[in-house]
Amino acid sequence: MTALEIRDLVKTYPVRNAFGRVSGEVRAVDGVSFTIPAGGVYGLAGESGSGKSTIARMIMGLTAPDSGDILIDGVSILGQRERALVQMVFQNPGASLNPRRTVGQSILVPLAAHGFAGDRRGRIGDLLDMVHLPRNFADRYPHELSGGQKQRVAIARALAVSPRLLVLDEPTSALDVSVQARVIDLLEELGRQLGLTYLFISHDLSLMRNFAQTVGILYLGKIVETGPVAQVFQDPQHDYTRLLLASVPVISAEEAAMRPVIPLINGEMPTAEELMALRAGLNAKEPAR
């Protein structure tokens, strides 16, 4: 069964010149489609400007798409005000938690917003249990917690309204690697327990290989390659996927042997005009998969 379906999503932004006049447009998201089966983990990999954050914002209802549709369990969520089905965990828990609210108060915000009527204190305690934090953390402030603990609170807050889908936007990139491993373990455990579906947005391909089942490589607003993560990484078809994989710093000879051998671009990144030309090339050459 499909939990999330994204259909031909498009979002363009106007480009303004120095005088505020519209001089063109950027297609930030350019016809993106994918589906995530219930309980699955879909990884969206891309660099800055690829459109991954715009896609997350549209799924969260923070940005309206120009065209296309977003369906959860077969029902379009565009235009719906109630969005308890989708929740988000942000990159930097230091910035996404209000420093003046206790952990309990932060978790209470979505509960109250969605009209939770039961025992609030008990629910907050249960949520803290779920993310393996002591129940008495409800009375602590974010500055009393470590980075990993803060991210656990952010996860508890996202789970407060029992969502079906979690959008994870680089959830561990601000954390140390040993802390990252434990947060990923927790997300996997919660996914199994609660039957959650994850959209995992990251630029860390090694992490993606270990966490996602299916991966979409996003480049200039388009998914240039998609497939089972093991297959895409073993046998990348698109030049950009090869470049990404070749760029990953790795720690073992086996991984190094797996990286495609391509001469890394020695000069500067392409200019806007060159990107346009590149994109024209991409439009002409559709991905193999």
Binding site: I184, L205, A230, L245, V248, E254, M258
Partner: peptide, 9 residues
């Protein structure tokens, strides 16, 4: 080292 995710899975 064990905590580092591997490109090979």
């Amino acid at each position: 080292i064990a905590a580092v995710p591997r490109l090979t899975g």
